[in-house]
Structure formats: C-alpha cells, structure tokens
C-alpha cells in the first residue's frame, strides 16, 4: 500500500501536466461506446439500426425521454432508456453531436 502511494505520488508528479490537461469526459465516451454494438462504431450504423453520429443533442435527449415514457414506440430502446439518467442522456447526446 505504501509502495502504491509512493508510486502514485511519483507518477502524479511526473505526468501531472498530462493528467490535468485531460478534457475528455471518459464516462460519456464509454457510455457512447456502449451504443456501438448496435448503432455502429462512433454511432455510424452499417445497417437498419439508425446512426447516432451527428444527431443534435436536444433531439437525442428528447428521443431518449420519449423511449423511456413510451411515447416513441420501440423494440429495444425503452429497455435501454430506462437504465440511464437524464444527465447521462445529456452526456451521450453531447458526445454523439460532436461526431461528424
């Protein structure tokens, strides 16, 4: 444990600049990657399932809410929408909106 701490301090010192420069929202990045096995890598679908890349954030969030409350009928998507929070819809929406 002592060793780990010592290491962490050493490491933080060495690469602190890099760490603090990190601007990527890793949670959003992973949650968006969650969608890829159905919606395609980077939200660019190769089949009948819609792409998510480039969708406007507000539209994405609105659709997720509509899936959750059932106002937009779905096969799979209500089950997914119910598992995420509103804040997570926003984070994923921002992520996909930024993909060109």
């Amino acid at each position: 444990m002592k060793k780990t701490l010592a290491f962490t301090l050493l490491f933080a010192g060495a690469l602190g600049a890099v760490a603090s420069a990190q601007a990527v929202d890793i949670r959003a990045r992973f949650m968006a990657a969650n969608c890829a096995y159905c919606h395609g890598p980077d939200g660019k679908s190769r089949g009948a399932i819609p792409s998510l890349a480039g969708l406007e954030k507000a539209y994405f969030v609105e659709q997720m809410k509509a899936f959750r409350d059932g106002t937009r009928p779905a096969t799979v998507m209500q089950k997914h929408a119910m598992g995420y929070t509103d804040a997570e819809y926003e984070a994923m929406g921002a992520w996909f909106a930024a993909i060109k």
């Binding site: 890829a36 159905c38 890598p41 190769r46 399932i49």
Partner: peptide, 26 residues
C-alpha cells in the same frame, strides 16, 4: 425495464442483421 421482446418480428430480424454488422465492425 430490461427484458425480452413482446413477440418475434421481421423488424427485429432486420435489427439483428444490423446488430451483427455493427458489432463485427466495432
């Protein structure tokens, strides 16, 4: 909220096909 389809459908086969292509691509 998780669970299974209400019933089998052709639409879901189209989605299954798309799922396969996308998971292979990913």
């Amino acid at each position: 909220g998780g669970g299974v389809s209400k019933e089998e459908s052709e639409l879901e086969f189209a989605y299954m096909d798309a799922w396969a292509k996308n998971v292979w691509a990913d």
